[in-house]
Design a protein around this nucleic acid. Structure first.
Length: 961
RNA sequence: GCCGAAGUGGCGGAAUGGUAGACGCGAGAGACUUAAAAUCUCUUUCAUGCAAAUGAGUGUGGGUUCGAUUCCCUCCUUCGGCACCA
């Protein structure tokens, strides 16, 4: 009887008493062993306790930890808590219970739950970011950055919830609303502390080459940093009368289109825009509405463009054209220079803006080499799919009549004429430069071809009216019509490269060459300067929050900031605070905090009342793990060198961008300061997928689809829970919970337990136990050992499991162990050696059951030998078994025989003769099952892939009459 | 719109160029049982067929190959991230 509750309670206590795997970080290192630093993503100890998602990643890492230990590695597997944060503070606001208390309770709950799961953490080195012994070093890190000029104070915009009277993190703003009370969030300007992460922007990109991370994660980091090369072009500005006003600088990645520039747009935040707003009421009004727009309003407005004309003109030196200067909120103040030059012919947004205010459009790129050519066709019957697909042209059916045609650019020119011929029955059009080609069947059935000049508004409008009179209004501005046709704007998109036209010295150049030539030209003339822009901003770390590490800064009576002195660290978080949100930092309400500052620094001195973003705490914790109790340093150089960097990091996809970026930033900073000797903190990383509710949706209390680990442990035990979560599918995939499928794992463990009982009986049978030398038993007497299959299967399984664990393919490892158990169940005897090795193999997966079986075997042996085996006190200290590849090999293999790629027969073949190609083919050809398929056929080609497949390619014999 | 990931039985999934559906769940049939539970045995991609067998089949349509779930192109769908980023 498999009593999981009893077994698990018993061995959990045993391991705790033995102190198994404890004190790794603090203990002495074994220089002969390779180290392996496994890191679990810092968890926030929420009040609701451990959920099944935590179980997944914890278990996967624990299995690796146990596997590597058994394979002779020195494993660092630490645990800690990202204990500062909002939920505890919000709870305090509601209930008045101090966050320190709720956090402590939550950690205790988590610890108990994790221990029940047999996660083999080194609890002796447990850390929590809210502990003064930890945040003292967070503050030290801040001061180090401050000392080096990488922590600075500046005015900045924050998300402000007027109802909660507090600042919100970006993650707490959902669709422009406060996550909790759904009030519109507004932007407020406050003096804030920043970390200068941008110092490392380039290395944060290039460093990714050194690490083994999922490529998608790397890509996201790169996108976030958003490096772009372009040029800043400066234009002189004058007013209506030609009087100089100043200049404006515009950032552009496509200066090759500058001959097509027809206007300039300033962001409402631009200093010239603010300047003119002081003079003209109309401008001031526009700026005011733009700045009061909420995120939500912006989203609802969509792409609708609005703006005001300043009455100024920017001079385009290339053409000497006077370009009107506008102000519009589609230009962002925070990106580039806050001003853009409008090239409506090759930029969608510029085009839309030009459309609204009827500004000039001048094409300067001919899309000769389209990457894709599209035309919309109606009622095409004359062309068969086959004909076109032969040409490399593919069709997609869209509804019944219209079809979309896609032609690779390389093939378009080659087949242009042919395609036109074939498609004249339909209606199609294309745009080449500023020419629009129409080919259509008109109302009388005649086929007409028309070439229009895109700048000839009347002609285009007339045509539109003629053929689309019911759907589109004839307007004064034919661009409106053109813009309403997706095919037109598709072809006008700015990213499309082509050949430059209407552009003086750039004419005929391909886009990339044209960009370079124009940049050279502008720099030579002194009108522009090459620049690289980044999306990455400095890291705003101030939070007007209580439950975080205080920023270790004090202000003198003049308000000048000074660092808190080293001997005053940790700069303790005060306890006498009012949690109720007032719009100011809660620390401001602490009498003790202010008294302390005056006492230590003098009268009139005040403390900084903001706390640090919790990301600061969690971006260096992996370093603290190497030396968690050090009171002199954040970690000793020795310990850092011995353990770091992290060899394997398991973390969810949800916070990969910011946390990883910040961690890498700290690593690079500390390296530059001489504390670390490596560039990247996490060498290898993988992401666990999400465990979804039984309905395939994300688990949430409100949806009522939450599965708690406790209920599963109660019913089936922790071993079952561990195995089930690993068996669900690939570790990195999102997987729905299937409450019924858990039983399959439980049955598997029950079978193992049953086998263990009968094995134990065998152990007590001296006759079997003593006479056994495994190999001899097989060789000399194969017959009584019907377990031969079992032996082979065991070694095959051991091979598979040994390969799968380091690759995190736990699901297939478990499946192969199930196969083995199924085979063993059918044989009457299992070789003792194999069984013992199986228990070792089981240990990382089901640590409780494996320990139980192992200890019972030990006891039984001790009784027999009366010499207790004192070497290993636990199965988890044993060595990983070695697979015997000879035993694992099949003597006979099955080779499938194909005729023209279809399996028609199977050939049983000795693996010794696997390379004898001619004999294999000869035997295969003679197989009776193939007669039917080979009669009347000539074998054109014979393929034999050793041990894998035989394929005969045949053609029908010509009849000779 | 851009970037990224993914699409295989009733379900979770396996197979990374070589017999598609391992393993598990569910379902069906049977054995044991007074009965139920538990356990065991067999069947379970679809179509035709009593069966043997034959054909089809990994989102769509093509390509490369003796052979494609796997590699290449196209389109469709779903999910994740970014987004008036010049």
């Amino acid at each position: 009887m498999y009593d999981h509750t009893k077994i698990e309670a018993c061995w959990q206590k045993f391991w705790a008493d033995e102190g198994l795997f404890q004190n790794v970080a603090g203990g002495q290192a074994d220089s002969k062993k390779d180290k392996m630093f496994l890191l679990f993503a810092f968890a926030y100890p929420s009040g609701s306790g451990l959920h099944v998602g935590h179980v997944e990643s914890n278990t996967a890492l624990d299995m690796m930890a146990r596997y590597w230990r058994m394979n002779g590695k020195q494993v660092m597997f630490p645990v800690g808590w990202d204990a500062f944060g909002l939920p505890a503070e919000n709870y305090a606001i509601k209930t008045g219970i101090p966050p320190a208390q709720t956090t402590r309770d939550a950690i205790n709950t988590f610890r108990g739950q994790i221990q029940r799961l047999a996660i083999s953490y080194d609890w002796a080195g447990e850390i929590a970011t809210s502990h003064p012994g930890y945040y003292r070093w967070t503050q030290w890190l801040f001061l180090k950055l401050y000392e080096k000029g990488l922590a600075y104070k500046a005015p900045g915009l924050v998300n402000w919830c007027p109802s909660c009277q507090t600042v919100l993190a970006n993650e707490q703003v959902v669709d422009g609303k406060c996550e909790r009370c759904e009030t519109q969030v507004i932007q407020r300007s406050l003096e804030q502390w920043y970390f200068k992460i941008t110092k490392y922007k380039d290395e944060l990109i290039s460093g990714l080459d050194q690490v083994d991370w999922p490529s998608a994660t790397k890509q996201q980091q790169i996108n976030w940093i958003g490096k772009k090369k372009g040029i800043d072009i400066t234009y002189q500005i004058e007013d209506e009368q030609g009087r100089a006003i100043g200049d404006v600088t515009c950032f552009s990645t496509r200066p090759d289109t500058n001959f097509g520039a027809t206007f300039v747009v300033l962001a409402p935040e631009h200093k010239l825009a603010i300047k003119i707003a002081k003079q003209k009421k109309e401008m001031a009004k526009y700026l005011a509405t733009a700045s009061h727009k909420t995120e939500l309003e912006r989203q609802q407005e969509g792409q609708k463009k609005t703006g005001v004309f300043t009455g100024w003109y920017a001079i385009n030196n290339l053409t000497n054209k006077r370009m009107p200067v506008w102000i519009s909120d589609f230009v962002l103040g925070g990106f580039g220079t806050g001003a853009v030059v409008g090239v409506p012919s090759h930029d969608r947004r510029d085009f839309e803006f030009a459309k609204v205010y009827n500004l000039e459009v001048k094409p300067v790129v001919r899309h000769q080499e389209l990457t894709e050519y599209r035309s919309y066709l109606m009622g095409v019957d004359s062309v068969t799919d086959q004909e076109l697909t032969k040409l490399g042209i593919s069709f997609a059916l869209e509804g019944k009549k219209a079809r979309k045609l896609t032609i690779p650019a390389s093939k378009y020119h080659q087949y242009q004429q042919l395609i036109r011929e074939k498609l004249t029955a339909g209606f199609w059009n294309e745009v080449i430069g500023n020419e629009i080609w129409f080919c259509f069947k008109n109302k009388t059935g005649q086929v007409t071809e028309l070439v229009l000049d895109a700048s000839n508004w009347d002609q285009v409008a007339e045509l539109c009216h003629q053929y689309n009179s019911d759907s589109i209004e004839k307007t004064q501005n034919p661009w409106l019509y053109l813009a309403s046709n997706s095919w037109y704007t598709d072809l006008m998109i700015q990213e499309t490269a082509g050949v430059t036209i209407n552009s003086d010295f750039l004419n005929g150049l391909e886009t990339h060459q044209a960009i370079e030539k124009m940049m050279d030209y502008l720099e030579e003339k002194g009108w522009g300067k090459r620049v690289t822009t980044y999306k990455l901003r400095d890291w705003l770390i101030s939070r007007q929050r209580y439950w975080g590490a205080p920023i270790p800064i004090v202000y003198d009576p003049e308000g000048k900031p000074h660092p808190v002195k080293n001997e005053h660290l940790p700069w303790l978080l005060p306890e006498d605070v009012d949690f109720k949100p007032t719009g100011e930092s809660p620390l401001k309400s602490s009498q003790e905090f202010f008294e302390r500052t005056e006492r230590l620094y003098g009268k009139g001195w005040t403390p900084e009342v903001d706390t640090m973003d919790t990301f600061v705490d969690s971006s260096w914790y992996y370093l603290r793990y190497t030396d968690p109790r050090n009171e002199q340093e954040f970690a000793s150089p020795d310990k850092l060198k011995q353990w770091s960097p992290v060899d394997f990091y398991m973390i969810g996809q949800e916070h990969i961008v910011l946390h990883l970026l910040y961690s890498r930033f700290f690593t690079k900073f500390l390296r530059d300061e001489g504390y670390l000797n490596f560039d990247e903190p996490f060498l290898k990383m993988r992401h666990q997928g999400m465990i979804l509710g039984p309905n395939g949706k994300k688990m949430s209390k409100s949806k009522g689809n939450v599965i708690t680990p406790d209920e599963v442990i109660e019913k089936f035990g922790a071993d079952t829970l561990r195995l089930y979560e690993m068996f669900m599918g690939p570790i990195d995939a999102d997987k729905p919970w299937d409450a019924r499928a858990v039983i399959g794992i439980y049955k598997f463990l029950k079978k193992i337990h049953g086998l263990a009982e009968s094995q134990l009986a065998n152990h007590l049978d001296l006759a079997i136990d003593r006479s056994l030398d495994s190999n001899r038993a097989i060789a000399s007497n194969p017959q009584p050992w019907s377990a031969k299959d079992g032996r082979q299967k065991f070694h095959q399984t051991l091979q598979k499991v040994t390969q799968d664990i380091p690759q995190l393919k736990f699901n297939t490892a478990i499946a192969s162990m199930m196969e083995l158990v199924n085979v063993w169940e059918k044989t009457d005897k299992i070789l003792r050696e194999d069984w013992e090795n199986f228990v070792l193999m089981l240990a990382p997966f089901a640590p409780f059951l494996a320990e139980d079986i192992y200890q019972q075997m030990k006891q039984a042996k001790a009784k027999l030998n009366s010499s207790p085996d004192s070497q290993c006190s636990s199965v988890h200290l044993a060595s990983w078994p070695q697979a015997d590849s000879e035993l694992a090999q099949d003597e006979q293999i099955i080779i499938p025989i194909q005729i023209n790629g279809k399996v028609r027969a199977q050939l049983e073949w000795s693996s010794a003769e696997i390379d004898n190609k001619s004999k294999v083919l000869e035997t295969a050809r003679a197989l009776p099952q193939l007669k039917h398929w080979l009669d009347g056929q000539t074998v054109k080609k014979e393929i034999y892939v050793p041990g894998k497949i035989v394929n005969f390619v045949t053609v029908a014999k010509m009849k000779i009459d």
